[in-house]
Design a binder for these strands. Structure first.
Ligand code: FES
Ligand code: FES
Lengths: 137, 137
DNA sequence: TTTAAATGATACCATATTAGTATCATTTGT
DNA sequence: ACAAATGATACTAATATGGTATCATTTAAA
């Protein structure tokens, strides 16, 4: 059971790589060489990142992608949101026979709390924090 | 993106229902009536719960299942483990080109911490705590 | 001692999600 | 005009999930 799927993983790899190439515009083929991710798949992911405002794109010859935000404004939970939809545990474990009172359900509240904490922890992981990690090696 | 799949969900429903029938042996058909879960599917799930020590089973005519542990010793994270495998975020976001030092990777440590906290929070949710919820309605 | 009612084990099928590809349209520098 | 890039989108393949079928084994009771 993994919280992070392939799309999100590739997106992180790509964004991180781009963050290292300070401000240089990159085309998909540059990234695919470096990251060993299949060209058309990576392209789809970069297009999605563009669509959601993480990347700026320029079309035509000499075009490519470049980060549209500071790495410290790119949060892991946002990437998960884009590629995997909203994170949620489970609305309701029990059916009416067992737990008829949806509104005052203690279990639901506990689960919702866990979900919120997880989200806030994921939002503390920024692309920036990955770069810091790089500097120390 | 959900942390809980159908199997785990059904397992919780079934265990919870059984916990309410204090100590009474129940056969699959009793549960399937009450929970509206398809008979063969529920049966597979109960068999798995038995295999992993959550239920005791008696075969033959008049047989059935019964809780093998106190509800306060049945933890949500254990059920997730049985039906969805070990919960892990992601081993390694970055490939060698970007993050070559697997051992001293700050990111990995942060992710591992988040994972541990999540697990420990899920382990605080016991079947017992669901029953408490029931009493209050 | 036969039989019916239960679980054990396991193989199978159906559907949904995820991973990856292909293709054509649009833009743009040369 | 043309080639090189992304935009959009439809398609295919592989895997995971959800659910079924079947036969073997055990056991209480007629
Ligand atoms: S678990 Fe669904 S309302 Fe309590
Ligand atoms: S992310 Fe894999 S070693 Fe750092």
């Amino acid at each position: 059971m993994s919280l992070i799927n392939r799309d999100t993983d590739y997106a992180i790899k790509a964004l991180c790589f781009m963050a290292k190439q300070n401000k240089e515009k990159l085309k998909v083929s540059d990234l695919t060489r470096a990251l060993k991710i299949p060209y058309p798949f990576l392209r789809k992911i970069l297009q999605a990142l563009h669509k959601h405002g993480f990347l700026a794109a320029s079309k035509g010859k000499g075009g490519g992608f470049i980060l549209a935000r500071s790495p410290r404004r790119i949060f892991l939970n946002d990437l998960i949101l884009v590629f995997q939809g909203p994170l949620k545990l489970n609305n309701c474990f029990l059916n009416k026979k067992i737990c008829p009172d949806v509104n005052s359900c203690l279990l639901r509240r506990k689960i919702s709390d866990i979900e919120k904490r997880l989200k806030s922890e994921l939002s503390l992981l920024t692309l920036d924090s990955l770069m810091i990690n790089q500097e120390r090696r």
